[in-house]
Each structure stands twice: as C-alpha cells, then as structure tokens.
C-alpha cells in the first residue's frame, strides 16, 4: 500500500484517538471508580485526580465472603481447564492423525457443541444436577463449562498437532514406544505452546461465565461473577463494591490480551481466519 502523507497521518491518528477513547473509557471507569470515594462517584465533571481509597475493596472482602466466591471461581475454572485439556487434547490428536473421510464431520460435530444456546439446556441441567445431588457444587459447573471448553481445546490443539512432524512419532514407534507413550513423551511436549494457549482460553471462559453459575449454584458454590451481580438491587446499588469486584474479575482477561493477543484470532474465530 502507498505510504500516507502528513495530512493523512494526522487524520489517521485523530480517528485512532477517538476509537481508543470510546473503547477504553469503560475500562478506565471500572478501574477508577473502584478506588473513588463514594461521594464523588458521579461528580460532574468526573474527578480525574483524587485521593484513591481502598474502602470498596475492604467492604468487598470484609462484609461479604467475596474471597470465598473468588476461590469458587478459581476451583471451577482450574478444574474445568484441567479436565478439558486432558480429554480435548487426546481427541485433537486423533482428529489430527486419523486419515478418514468422516473425520471432518467428527471435528465439526465436536466444534458445534460449543455453539448451542446455554439457556436451552439450563432446565435439563438443573433437573439432572438436583436429582444427583450435585446442584450448588463446583463439580456441576466444572462439567457444564467443559462442554464449551473441550470443543475449543480440540479445535486449537488440532492446529498445533498438525504442525508436529509424524516422522518423529514414527521414529519413536521404531524405538518401541506405544501409542500413548509416543503421544505423552514426543508429541505433547512439542505442542506445549498449544496447551498453554488452550488452558488460558478455558480458564478465562470459565472465570467469566455467568448464566450457568447463576442458575446452578447457591450460597455454597457461588462464583465471583454472580456475587458481583448481587450488589445490584433496584433500591440501593452499591457501585463502589460492584466496581471493585468487576476490576478483580477483569484482571485475568486483560493480562491474557496483553501477553498473548496473537493467539486470540485463532481461538475466537474457529479457524475461519488463518
């Protein structure tokens, strides 16, 4: 493409500034409101410089067991990530290695599993978990989140396994390695970056999820996203606590974007953008 001239450069940066302001203001608002004293929360014009306070964070962890809800979120997210990586990377390996005309259909079938509307299966889940006594336990959410995380892992890991040369596996087979040993000792270590990326995607999805957490948990297994929502009620909205909780919840996602944005395209577009 042609190099833009000075005037065009100024126009481009002006437009970029507007775009950045629009898209980053809400994030700035969460961060600043979480440390803003309540009396100036909605002050006009908004206070850019003020003495930050930790009162909202103290409220959050002091008056309500928010720490417990964060722990629940962590347990559920880590549990689902571990389970999905195990099952998902095994399946991805099979899809990558078996040469059969039906394999494409199997891959699409697995991928389609993460596209179904959660609301359509929440009633059956509720009934099944109630009958089995799993309602309001982290286990229920681990299972439910894995239905979305396994397909995602399969899709991502297949791409990484495709890039591992089969010659290495054949050499390992000659050395007397079995199928699982070859997979575990040769292929998987070479696809380690894929495992890391899949793990982060699974973790963030589970950490951010709200609908199932709202319907399938109560006081025992409630996660942080549901807890934050509980500070909202029509008569008294506790904005300070909401913003402090929101800020804590958005940290993992922001770190992920800043450190591995190049994997976002692959993970979010389901292979439709190379």
């Amino acid at each position: 493409m042609t190099r833009p001239g000075l005037q065009q450069k100024i126009l481009i940066y002006l437009l970029l500034a507007i775009v950045l302001i629009v898209f980053l203001t809400p994030i700035y608002l969460i961060a600043s409101s979480s440390v803003k004293p309540s009396p100036i929360m909605f002050q006009r014009p908004p206070a850019f410089f003020f003495t930050p306070t930790l009162e909202h964070y103290q409220d959050l962890f002091g008056m309500r067991p928010f720490g417990k809800f964060i722990l629940n979120s962590l347990i559920v997210a880590l549990g689902s990530t571990a389970f999905s990586l195990t099952i998902g990377s095994l399946a991805a390996y099979a899809i990558s290695r078996i040469r059969h005309k039906r394999m494409n259909d199997v891959a699409f079938w697995i991928l389609s599993m993460r596209m179904f509307p959660p609301i359509a299966v929440v009633v059956p889940y509720y009934i099944i978990f109630k009958a089995t006594g799993l309602l309001d336990t982290p286990f229920a959410l681990i299972i439910v989140y894995s239905t979305a995380n396994i397909p995602l892992t399969v899709w991502l890991m297949k791409g990484f396994f495709d890039e591992v040369p089969t010659a290495l596996e054949e050499a390992a087979a000659v050395d007397g390695y079995g199928l699982l040993a070859t997979f575990w000792r040769v292929t998987l270590p070479l696809a380690a970056p894929g495992l890391a990326v899949s793990a982060v995607f699974c973790f963030i999805f589970s950490w951010n999820e709200f609908l199932f957490a709202l319907m399938l948990t109560g006081s025992n297994a409630q996660t942080a996203t549901v807890a934050v929502m509980s500070f909202w009620s029509s008569d008294a909205v506790q904005w300070g606590r909401i913003m402090a909780g929101s800020f804590i919840i958005l940290i993992p996602g922001v770190i992920f974007v800043l450190t591995c944005q190049r994997w976002l395209v692959r993970g979010l577009t389901m292979g439709s953008v190379k």
Partner: peptide, 20 residues
C-alpha cells in the same frame, strides 16, 4: 492489542459498566 481487551471481559461486567 488494546482494542482487543473488551472481548475478554465477562459479559456481566460489560453489562454492569454500561449500567453505570
């Protein structure tokens, strides 16, 4: 990179900040 941040935020948090 900065513009990708909104995608990784929980939809509940997105709802809450827009409610704000």
């Amino acid at each position: 990179t900065l513009l990708m941040i909104p995608m990784m935020i929980s939809p509940v948090i997105v709802g809450l900040v827009w409610l704000f």
